[in-house]
Amino acid sequence: MAFDLFLLEVIVTGLLAGVMYALVALGFVLIFKASGVFNFAQGVMCLFAALTLAGIMEKTGWPAWVAIPLTIGVMIALAWLIERLVLRHLINQDPIILFMATIGLAYVLEGSGDIIWGSDVKVLDIGLPQGAVDWLLDTHNFYIEKLEIFAAVIAAVLVGVLAIFFQKTRIGRALRAVADDHQAALSVGISLRTIWVIVWSVAGIVALVAGVVWGTKSGVQFSLSLIALKALPVLILGGFTSIPGAIVGGLIIGVGEKLAEVYMGPLVGGAVENWFAYMLALAFLLIRPQGLFGEKIIERV
């Protein structure tokens, strides 16, 4: 019994870690669908958003409900700047060129975040619940953090809101049209530039949510931007263009990583977590390159 409970605990912890990966991967998918840009800077955007929020609260002492809209404003301004200064000039370039441009963007954001707000580890406390769930710990000796459950709820709500936004609103339809076919969307009068600003803003807001949750958990610091790299295997598993794929992929990677760490780690010396996700993705690529929910790419000669 005790063993089963332990297994369950590992799985639940993995699932909740997976939610975090999924949150980051979600931002990737949004941008990739709408503009075909693989946004490497998504992880740094999380860092930047969390830094800005923590910085505003620290410097001005304003409460979270003032600072959060302000940060959202900053992220929207950032999206506009990125479109204006970078993307607009790179239309019609190879995807790989755009990818490298976002690596450059990641450096710029990282450096500016550090210069503006300082590079020390920041504590982000906007009043999210913390500590273990007492009831489960008392009755079943089962350890789960409140924050992680909260993150799962937030992720669920976020996905719900995004789904409604994409299916029901006018802008959402335009976004889906652009994702389907740039040319056709342009010809029915959808402005690509506006759409890009919107989609980068949405990705910025998703980054803020992910950044806040991660930041509350382990402090706002540079390592936050590294989860962007973890989101890559998540995307490969889920498919680059699928929002449900990002969620499911995130969960699989999260659980797989924790299970591998617990059961395989002791055999080979630990720290399997560092590379397990990539190897899993690599193995997966050989079997099903388009991912679980991705669109199959058919090459014509």
Partner: peptide, 24 residues
């Protein structure tokens, strides 16, 4: 030193973007 280090990161990042736009 810290400021100049961050500035370097920004300059390198910006240079990459500029190169990709102006002279790929």
């Amino acid at each position: 030193t810290a400021f100049s280090e961050h500035m370097q990161v920004i300059i390198v990042g910006a240079l990459i973007i500029i190169f990709l736009i102006v002279e790929p």
